[in-house]
Amino acid sequence: MRLLDFLKGERKKSASVAKERLQIIVAHQRGHRGQPDYMPMLEQELLEVIRRYVQVEQDAINISLDSDNDCSVLELNVTLPNRG
């Protein structure tokens, strides 16, 4: 493999690609950790409502639930497209 890499010119090692991809997906998973089971459904339905009025991308919505001691905050971030 090394000889082959040398002949083809150095390319990015597959293990470091794996690491980068995992760091992103694991960070995403942890964001959802401990959330109620209805969150993905809620996110989907909110997105549908918003899309009735504004054309936004599937991934333009970001929803999170933060709990402190005695209150929970549902945070909803929607990136709207540029006008004009």
Binding site: M1, K13, S16
Partner: peptide, 17 residues
């Protein structure tokens, strides 16, 4: 394979998890 850069090394796995 870790040395060849084709397998995640143990530090990476430990760091991610």
């Amino acid at each position: 394979r870790v040395d060849d850069g084709d397998m995640l090394n143990l530090e990476d796995i430990r760091e991610i998890l």
